[in-house]
Every structure is written in structure tokens, then in C-alpha cells.
Simulated assay, not measured.
Amino acid sequence: MLEKRLWSNVFFIWVGVLTCVLLWQIVQNPRSSQMHTVYTLYTQNYSRFSYPISQLPATDYNQLINLGFSFSVLNLVCNESKPLLLVLVHSSPKNFAKRRTIRETWGKNEEDVKILFMLGSVNSSDLQKTLEEENRLHNDFIQGSFLDTYRNITYKHVMVFKYAIYHCPQAKYILKTDDDVFVNMPSMKTFLSVDLSPYGANEVLFCTPRRNTKVLRTYRSKWRVSFSEYPNRNYPTYCPGWTLLYSPDVIFALYKEAQKADYFWIDDIHITGTLTEKIHVTHTDIEHLVISPKDLRSIVNDYSYNVSKPFLYGRANLNEKEIRALWKFATTHSPPRSIFKEFSRQTPYVIFVFKNTHLLE
């Protein structure tokens, strides 16, 4: 009996030591490696959200921040469907090849996923005719009446919100992304419908946050911002706009703030930084659901498909070869039944924490 008690005590002591070591490593350096990353992916109060458009001014539809506005090209892809995901892709008018690559890979419209390209207006009548012909072939453009220029990107981002609110209110989730991005659509649908909820969620802003970023003042930088434009030394925590997964309630709250706020031309900082602070929504970091550089090289260059963990996105600024290679991988490998469970199985020290999660039936 004494020997059994001794071994029992040794076992519990050993478990306690291991637990303390793990917790110490997480506290000391939570981002040093994926083995010690604490995921705090959460959504609060799962619910079917209905946009309270009655809260908006009667003139809202024809206003975009400080501009009079109209949709010069408008495709109503949702109709009577209730898509799980609405994907609105920022695209420059001349990026014909990038749009073609997306259409031929991950960007195919399905019953549960609707994908559109977001553009502003152009000065060239010849270019506009070419765009209209492209739209006649694919019916996947949304074009706003503001000029499509670099410093007008915030108008385009808020147009994403406007379209979702007025023309696809049925969508459970909204993904804003760019035309040089890869979305692992089979895994994304699993992630939304299994790991989150097929009925939607509240307070979702999943992205790759940047913290304590200094405002650039040098004239050599295209990101230069003057003191009159932004007086503070650092930007608030914000998310690069290449991948932003929103829930409808966050879309609506940000839209209301954007429509009455002063214009700021860097949309990532303005919308996911300044305005997100105002509505008190927390950024959920999904950096480890972005494919690692090593895994990307394995797929694109080695064709070995020796991928270490599941992923929802390729990295930012991909070229056509990389997007097509990732799509080949995605369509020849079945997605895991649960992204989180698979991630936890492969990386046992990763902890996924859900707070106040209520799934709908």
C-alpha cells in the first residue's frame, strides 16, 4: 500500500512540474513558437443578426462617408439564398489576371459562398468598357461612383459594409480580402460551420493584428502621414486588410461609425484601428491559421505537400503560381473535420479558448 501511494505521489508531482514549466514558457514568451501559443479565439452570444437599417438616416444609401454615392455596377448575388460566407475582394480595375486567377481557383460562387470584386470608377472610357465586358461575362463586380485611387481605399472598404448591409443581409459571415490572397475555401467552410457556427456569430473580427505601429512621417514612404492627418505618434492596434473576417453586427457598428467619422485614407488603420476602438470590439488573432512560409515553399516549389498544420489563408501578396499551387493542394486534400481539433492534435500545447460561446440550433 505504501509503495502504491509513493508512486501516486510521484505521478502527481511530475504532472505538476510539467504544467508549471509549460505555463512559465507561455508567460515568458507567448509568441516564441507555435508550441506555446495561446489562442484566444472567441465569439460572444451566437445569434442570428438582423441589420437595424432603421437606425440609419433616410439618405444613408446614397452617402459614402463625405461623398454622394451610387453603385454604378451592382450584382445582386445573394437573392433568396442565405450564404454562409460573403467574400468581397478589393481589386484594382486593371488587375484582370488576378481576378481571373481567383475565379479559376478558390473564388467560385456556390450556394453557400458568394464572391464579388469591389472596384471604384475609372477615368478611361476604354477601360470602363473593358470592365463592363468582364462583368457581363462573370456578373461579379460591384463598382462605386468614387474614383479608384490609392487614397480612396477607405471608400472602398466602407462600400464593402454598405453592400453587405443593403444587398446581402442574409450572409452569416463577411470576408474582406484582396485580389492577391488565397483563401482555403474547403477549410474555411469547415471552420465557419463546425468550429464556429453555421448560424452566425457576434463580435467576430478575425485578423492578424499589428500593435504599437509608429506613424511614418518620412517623405520617402508611400505610407507617409502628416501631423494634420494623424497627430499621434503611434497607431492603435489594427489589422492589415488582406484578410478580415467580420460578423454582421461588427460590420454594422463599424459602418455607422465610418459614415459619420472624418475621412482617413489608410483604411486598415482607420476602420480596424480607430473605429474598432470606438465600438469596443476585440481583434482575434488568427496568425497561426495563415500558412507558414515553410509550408508555402513546400507546396509551391517542392510539390511535397509536407504541410505541418491546417491553414485558412495563404500569405499576403501571393503571385498566380502560388495561388494555383495552393488551390491544387486544397482540392486534393480533404479538409479536417474540425480545424481546431486537428490543430490541437498536431500541436498539443496549443490551447484554444472560447469565451461565452453559445451555438444556435
Results as ranks from 00 to 15, higher is better:
F71Y: 15
S72C: 04
V77Y: 02
C78P: 03
C78W: 04
N79M: 08
E80G: 10
S81I: 07
S81H: 10
K82G: 04
P83C: 09
L86P: 01
L86Y: 03
L86N: 02
L88E: 06
S92P: 02
K94Y: 10
N95D: 13
A97N: 05
K98C: 00
R99F: 01
R99D: 01
R103V: 04
E104V: 00
W106T: 00
N109K: 10
D112I: 05
D112P: 01
V113L: 14
K114N: 05
L116P: 00
M118W: 03
M118R: 04
M118E: 04
G120M: 09
N123E: 14
S124P: 12
S125N: 14
S125G: 06
K129I: 11
E132F: 13
E133S: 14
N135L: 09
D140W: 01
Q143D: 03
G144C: 07
S145F: 06
S145Y: 06
F146L: 03
D148R: 10
R151K: 14
I153S: 09
T154C: 12
M159C: 09
K162W: 05
Y163W: 08
I165W: 01
Y166E: 06
H167R: 06
P169N: 05
A171H: 03
I174Q: 07
I174K: 06
L175I: 12
D178L: 06
